[in-house]
Amino acid sequence: MGTRPVLVYDGDCGFCTSAARFAERRVRPRCAVTAWQDADLAALGVTRQRAEYEVLWVTPAGRVYGGAAAVAKALLSAGRGWAVPGAVLELPGVRRVAGAGYRWVARNRARLPGATAACALPADRRPGAR
């Protein structure tokens, strides 16, 4: 593992790819941004199943955050004005709501702007299906 965190997203999903590119251009998190399909998941300590399930933030020490927590970590790492919403997303009451919002977006990503057919996960692998 490197010295920078890694933000791992679904490179087959148009919506996820658009979101990752937006983050790289506008948010500028201090991390490597990579599609799980291009990542060495074993080296990151992440399973393919988890990478397909949610966006991931992997620290250099190997700690893995998923979903809304990963988004919060990316925002915090960017600093500037982005750290404020990142910190808010980590507040206990907000964290629960953010998690529910993330799961809604993940379940419906095939219907969102930039989506492709690859965005639709099988029903048993959608967030909240567990």
Rank of each mutant, 00 (worst) to 15 (best):
M1Q: 12
R48A: 11
W82N: 06
V46Q: 03
P5Y: 03
A70K: 08
E52F: 05
C13H: 03
D10S: 02
A35L: 07
A35M: 10
A87M: 13
R125Y: 08
G11H: 03
R126N: 04
P127N: 13
G14Y: 09
C119L: 04
A61D: 10
L41I: 10
R50N: 11
A106S: 09
A69M: 14
L7V: 06
G81D: 11
G86H: 01
G101S: 06
A78H: 07
A74S: 15
C31K: 00
R103E: 12
V94Y: 04
L121Q: 11
T59R: 10
A72Y: 10
D10R: 02
P122M: 12
A35T: 10
D40R: 13
A87D: 08
R48E: 14
R111V: 03
F15N: 00
A23E: 05
V105A: 10
C16T: 15
D124K: 12
C31E: 00
L89D: 01
A42Q: 13
G101P: 01
K73C: 15
L76R: 14
F22S: 02
P127T: 14
V84C: 03
R26F: 12
N108S: 11
A118G: 06
E54W: 03
D124E: 15
T3E: 12
A117C: 13
D38Y: 09
Y65W: 15
A120V: 07
V84D: 06
E52Q: 10
A120C: 08
A51W: 03
G62M: 11
R48H: 15
Q49A: 14
G81I: 13
A98H: 05
V88G: 08
L76V: 15
A106E: 00
R96Q: 13
A115T: 06
A78D: 01
V33H: 03
R95W: 10
L76P: 00
A61K: 11
P29Q: 09
A51I: 01
V6S: 02
G11E: 00
R126P: 00
C13P: 00
R126A: 09
G99R: 08
P5A: 07
